[in-house]
Design a binder for these strands. Sequence first.
RNA 1: GGGCGGUUAGCUCAGUUGGUAGAGCACCGGCUUUACACGCCGGCUGUCACAGGUUCGAGCCCUGUACCGCCCACCA
Length: 856
Amino acid sequence: MPVPEKPALEGLEDALSAKWERDGTYRFDRSKPRDQIYSIDTPPPTVSGSLHVGHVFSYTHTDIVARFQRMRGKEVFYPMGWDDNGLPTERRVQNYFGVRCDPSLPYDPSFVAPEKPEKQPISVSRPNFIELCVKLTVEDEKVFEHLWRYLGLSVDWSMTYATIAPPAQRVSQMMFLRLLQKKLAYQVEAPTLWDVDFRTAVAQAELEDREQPGAYHRIHFAKRDPSTSLGTGGSGFVAIETTRPELIPACVALVAHPDDARYQPLFGTEVVTPIFGVRVPVLAHALADPEKGSGIAMICTFGDTTDVVWWRELKLPVRAIVQPNGTLGRVTWGAQGWETIDAARAQQAYDQLAGLSAKKAQARIVELLRESGDLQGEPKPITHNVKFYEKGDRPLEIITSRQWFIKTIDHRDQFIQRGREIAWHPEYMQARYENWVNGLNGDWCVSRQRFFGVPFPVWYPLRADGTTDHSQPLVPAESRLPLDPSTDVPDGYRADQRGKPGGFIADPDVMDTWATSSVSPQLVSQWETDADIFARTFPMDLRPQAHDIIRTWLFSSVVRAHFENQSVPWTHAAISGWVLDPDRKKMSKSKGNVVTPLGLLQEYGSDGVRYWAARGGPGVDTAFDVGQMKIGRKLAMKVLNVSKFVLAGEQPAGAVTEALDRGMLQNLAGLVDDATAELEDYEYAKALAKVESFFWDFCDNYVEAAKSRRYGDFGVEAAASASTAMRLALSVLLRLLAPYLSFVCEEVWSWSNTDSVHRSAWPTRAELIAVSGTDHAAQRSVFHLTEALNAIRKAKTDQKVSVGTPVKEVIYVAGDDAARSLALVERDLKAACRADGLVLKAGEPRVEITLKPAGV
RNA sequence: GGGCGGUUAGCUCAGUUGGUAGAGCACCGGCUUUACACGCCGGCUGUCACAGGUUCGAGCCCUGUACCGCCCACCA
C-alpha cells in the first residue's frame, strides 16, 4: 500500500478493526504448546450497567500486555466474557418486561413476554425468566463488543462467554457438586446477613459500612431476686444502652466483661426485660467492652454480628422477631408461646409492633418505654457505621435461614500459600489479599434467594408427612448438567411427584455472583469440556482486575482452583487502579461525571485514549485527563507524519555507513532492551515513557540532522545509509509503539508491509546491531550532535531568527571529547544548522553565529 | 483500632543501587522550516507534606507527625 498524500487518523478504528476481523489477526491457534501460549482470564463486565471510562482504562492495560506477549511470539488466549448474571440484570428484566419470577412454576415453552409491561407483574417460571434475561442482555453485549473493537482490544471474538449461558452454568454446577462430594460445601441453618429488600442472604465480601444516624437509648432492666417467685424482686435496675430498642423482645441475655467490677455481682443472676417481662441471664464474656455505653450489652437474636458470636459461644436460645421482609413477625406470648412473667402485657405491647418495619417499630417501642418509665432520659443521637449490602438501601438484618457455604476458614493458610505462588503487579497488592484472608471470620455463604443465577443442582426428598429432608440431598450425575431443579426431575422420581409427600422438592436458591464468576478460569480454559485446550491454557498466565475486588473475585477464584485443581488459577495478577475525577474521587455514575467512552474514543481517537490509559501504571489510580488524550493523539499524528517522510518516495538502498546513523541505531538497541525488560515486568507505563521520549528525540534531532543527507545532498551512498537506518529505526519504533497506539502503527506498517504489525516479531537488539555494528564513538557523536544542535538553535532563537534560517557561519566551541566526536558527523551538523561554514573547536564552550547580510 | 498506598513545578506525572531536582501540559517569546501549524525552536516555573535521625552527601534510607485514598475490625 503506497504512502498516502495526506495521512489521517480519522476512520482508522472502523477500517482496521474490520480488517483484523477479516484476517483473523487475533484468532487463537490452539495447536501451540503450553509454553508458547499466554492465556488471560479477562474480567467479564456487567452488561446491565454501561461501560465507563474506568473500563476503558483497565481493559487497555490488559490489551497492551496481550499485544506485547503476542509480538514476543506467544499465542495469546484472550477470550471476552459478559457478566449477565445477577441482581442488576434481574431487576432490569423485571421492570422491562413486567414479570416476576416464581421458581415453583413449571417452564412454559410457549410463553411470550408482553410488548409493554402490564401493571400487575406476570409470574413466570425460572427458565422463562432466564430466557428473558438472555434476550435482554444479548443486545447489551452487542453494544459492548462494538466499543471494545473500536478501542482495539485484541480479543479473539470467536471466544466469548456469558456467565448465565449453559456452559458457565455447567461448570459452576459441576464444581459445586464436587465440593459437595468432598464435603467442602455444606448447608446449615444459621444466622446469616440478610438484605430485607432483596430478601436474600449476602456474603461477608459484599458488605459495606455506611455512616448512619442512630441513637443510644438508655433502658432499665429490672434485677430479679432468684429467691422470690415470679416478680421482679424490686432489688433495683440495670441500665443498658442500645441503638436497637425494637429488639428488646428478641433479647436473650445481658453481657458484661468478666473483669468489670460493676457487674460481677450480677453474673449468674437474671434480669427481666422491660415491657415484655422475659427473664434473661446476665453473663460474662471477654468481648464485652466496659468502655462502651454502660458497659453491659443487650444480646438479641440478632442485632449485629457480635450478637451472633455471643449467642453461639454462650449457647443462648433464639428469639427471632425480624422477618425476611424486614418487618417484625407475630409472636404469641405466654403459656403456648414465648415465656414471660406477664403474658397479657407483653402481648398487648408486642401487637403494636408486629407488622412494622424495624424503623417504625423502634419509634413505637420508644413511646411504650417512655410510658412505662423504662427509658431513662432521652435517646442520645449519634452517627455510627452500619453494615449494608453494597447494592442495598436498608441496613442488613441477621436472619436465621438455611444456606449453602463453601469452607474457607479451615483453609486460610493454604489460600495464603497460593497467594504467594502468584506474581502480583504491583507487588504490594499481595498484602491486601493476605489481609483479607487473615480477616475472614466465617465460611463463604454462596446461596442467594434470587432467581436469575445459577441454580444449585440439588433436590430434597419429601417425607411421608410432607416435610423436607435436608439431610439427604438428591444430586444429579455430572452428565445431566447444566440443569434447573425447579424444572428438571431427580433420577428415580417422576415429574408428578414434585412437592408431594414421598416425592421431592427443588432447592430454591441460586449461587451468588462470585460463586459463579470465580470459576471463570476453568470456564474459559474449557475444563472438563476440552482437555486439550485446558492443558494448553491452565493454570492461566494472567488475571487482570481492579483492586476493590481482590477480596471477592480474586480470592474466590483462588479458593475454587485450589479445591478443584490443586493449583493457582493463574501465575500473574495485574491489579489496575481506578480512574479518579479531578476531585480525586473515584469516578462514578452517581457523581454525574461519567463521560461516555465511545464519545471520548471518537474525539481523541482510540490511540489517544489508549495512550492516556497506558500512562497509568499497574495499581496506580489515575486522574481522568483529556489533556493526556490530546497528547496521545498528537503522538499518533507524529507517527503518521514522520512515517510519511521516512517511507515516501524513491530511496537508494545500501549499507549503513554514517556515524550518525550507526549511533542512532545503537541507541535504539538500548531502548529495545529497556522497553522489553519493563514490559516483561508488566511495567507498560514505564516502557511507554522511554519509547515516547526516544521517539520524539528521533524525530526532532536525528531525522532533522539526517534529512539533508537523505535528500542526496552528500551523494547516493550517504543517502542510502540514512534511508536504510531510518527505515529500520521506524520499523522498530512502530513495533515498540504497536501495543499502545495499535491503530496508527498498523496503518503505517501497512505502507511497507503486507502482514500485521501486531503479528510481527517484537524488535531485538540483534536486528539493529547487525546493521549498525557496535561503535561507542558513533553513539557519542549522536549525543554531542544533539547537544550542539540545541546550543545552536538557542543561539539562533536569541538572535530572533528561525531555526531554518540559513546563516553565513557557525562557530561551535566545546570540550575536547565533543569536538572530536562531532568531527564524525560534521556534514550532518552543518546541514542541520544551515550554515555555509561550520567551525568546530575545542575549548571553553561557546556558540557564535554570523548571519547573512540582509537582502542576500 | 489494624493494614496498604500516596503527598515532587499552576495541572498530570517520572525520578533506577543515596551523588548538582526532570518530562509533558499550561504560560510567555520567536518561527509559513519542501514529514508534520494536529507543527518547530527557545524561555519561565520547585522549602521534593512536616519534624527529627543516619551519612561527606537524602526526593530516595530510618523514626515520628499531618493530610488524602483504599482495604479490614467484635462500631452494644
